[in-house]
Design a protein around this nucleic acid. Sequence first.
DNA 1: ACAAAAATCACATTAAAATATGATTTTGGG
DNA 2: CCCAAAATCATATTTTAATGTGATTTTTGT
Lengths: 69, 69
Amino acid sequence: MLVNQIGESIKNRRKELGITQPHLAELASISINTLYKLERGKGNPSLNVLIKLSEVLGLELRLEIKKKF
Amino acid sequence: MLVNQIGESIKNRRKELGITQPHLAELASISINTLYKLERGKGNPSLNVLIKLSEVLGLELRLEIKKKF
DNA sequence: ACAAAAATCACATTAAAATATGATTTTGGG
DNA sequence: CCCAAAATCATATTTTAATGTGATTTTTGT
């Protein structure tokens, strides 16, 4: 999973839940700037940021063995 | 998934493949110090570091909707 | 048992993420 | 159409991840 794909997933999930960037940022205790960059595929977020967002959004981060093709 | 769980997964996968920290660090183009900390659950690795390691280790990072319980 | 490599750890430095702020553009509801 | 909120973006500052180095401990192969 690439950086911009993660950003897309976060954004889509946020939209599904009908929350704004400012609201999500506050719920996850991160700055709106960090969230904005992440959603746009800019930057290189830390694992903690991803984990915090996952918790708020009801997502889970998994590291699995890649299926061949 | 928590930070130390990710570290464990990386370490376990590395052992499975029979690679050393110095070797994996070189293959993934990260410092052994960063890898060491990650495996020990210390620190807060960036997404790029996780992606690089995933590629070398044949893992994939996924962000899924959490199953209830 | 020995030696060499690997792993663990501390510490200092560098690079970059995270934040804060303010400005501009876009969007959505009334 | 308005206008207020949201989103986008740039820039500066603060915080911290990533690195480099060296030392110590642990593991592993012979």
